[in-house]
Amino acid sequence: MTGLSFADAIQLLLVGLSQGCLYSLIAIGLVLVYKATEQVNFAQGEFMMLGAFVGYQFIVLWGLPYWLGALLTLVFMGGFGYGVDALVVRRLTGQPVFTVFILTLALGIALRAVAGIVWGFGNYSLPAPVEGNLAFGSVIIGWSSVLAILVTAIVASGLYAFFRYARQGVAMQALSLNQLAAFYMGIPVKRLTSSIWAMSAIFGAIAGLLLGPVTLVSTQMGFVGFKAFAGAIVGGFGSIPGAVLGCLLIGVTEPFFDIMFPTFKGIGAYLIMFVVLLIRPEGLLAQIYAKKV
């Protein structure tokens, strides 16, 4: 830890912040689905990977302009998310949570394989939406990282407003409290649930498009999803501010951990999660009562 100057520390902090923002975009997708249906989507990382690959198809292989390609990707992934719920997950409504764990794990395996078959198992580069760097003295931050932070802020505050003020948002909250009661009140439960899956897939795709230029697009990039899980759990699964907070915490501490213990690179996120769970088994911003019998 000795060789770390102040500027280096700020640099790492900024890198961690933008990384944490990408984790939180994935985590927001997870938490949305969890909040609405108490289903956990272990394939969220794979949704992100698929988003990145679809973007690669549109932007690189078909040569569409970046923003048009990105828009088409989001539309496609929205439809994909809607379809996954409408065709597959909906059949398991009313089954134990564990069943959905396994279903989404299997879905993740299948999606990785499909992406590998369609696009190949190599690494592919995706162009960044904005090029260049922003320099403050010796501290340099890429515009794409700034964009990641901005997008996360917009998505998080937009969702907050959506759940607070929009009709559909309030309906989704009702749905997440009591499915059957919401159904009796005339809320279109099936359609809303599928829309939530679509939203979650769209946020995954945004994360994929932003992460693609940084880590390269490959079938393995979905494993980042597990760090988003760790972050969401640190914050207390089931609250969007909590998930964002937890992901930022993990994103910021991760580069420092990797520098301190280079041999154990990559496990910092999980250790932090473990420590938090030791102290507060329900996460930092817990929202769960004791289960009823």
């Binding site: 059949r91 398991l92 069943t99 279903l103 299997a106 879905l107 395996i109 394989a113």
Partner: peptide, 16 residues
């Protein structure tokens, strides 16, 4: 990817 695709699909079939 064929092996893992088959594995994933068989699992999906079982769960559903």
């Amino acid at each position: 990817g064929f092996d893992s695709l088959a594995f994933g699909m068989i699992l999906l079939g079982f769960i559903l």
